[in-house]
């Protein structure tokens, strides 16, 4: 399963927060939730429609619980964009459980001539971080520091 930036639609929503930015994400499965949350966040920072999936990268993470894993996953994607100037427009989470994740992403180096940059997200916070199973799958809320 791979999620592309254009697939997101209404399953990723910006939510009100006075000082910063929030996202709510729905998905029928946990891997899909992680993919949508990742692209939803990246889409706030850069115009993903212009990011070509030229190069693949492997991502493997471990954390003490699922919320921490979601936090670390998003932080990993954020740092790749900001420090490495590498943007991902496709994400595929191959395996995710309580404490570990294995995924790949496809994207390219940021080219200021082609890629419009939006909001600078400083960090992924634990504030009101929530990740829950629902009747139709999974739901998450993340607040981003901008």
């Amino acid at each position: 399963m791979v999620t592309r930036a254009r697939d997101l639609g209404p399953c990723v929503r910006e939510i009100e927060h006075t000082a910063d930015l929030g996202l709510e994400v729905d998905a029928p499965s946990l891997p899909l939730l992680f993919e949508r949350a990742g692209l939803g966040m990246l889409g706030l920072m850069i115009d993903l429609a212009a990011v070509e999936p030229r190069e693949r990268v492997a991502i493997a993470l471990a954390a003490e619980d699922r919320e921490a894993l979601l936090h670390d996953w998003l932080q990993d994607l954020l740092v790749r964009l900001q420090a490495g100037t590498f943007a991902l427009s496709e994400l595929a989470v191959e395996e995710v459980n309580e404490r570990a994740l294995r995924a790949w992403g496809a994207g390219e180096r940021v080219d200021r001539a082609r890629h419009r940059l939006y909001t600078e997200v400083k960090g992924v916070t634990y504030h009101q971080l929530a990740l829950r199973e629902t009747a139709s799958g999974w739901w998450a809320r993340i607040i981003l520091d901008v």
Partner: peptide, 27 residues
């Protein structure tokens, strides 16, 4: 600076229990 904060929140989140500290908010 942003990364220093995030690194520390992660480290301290794990270390807190060892010091017997329990706070009402993860942040």
């Amino acid at each position: 600076g942003y990364q220093v904060c995030d690194d520390a929140l992660r480290t301290m989140g794990r270390a807190m229990a060892r010091y017997g500290i329990d706070m009402p908010d993860r942040q």
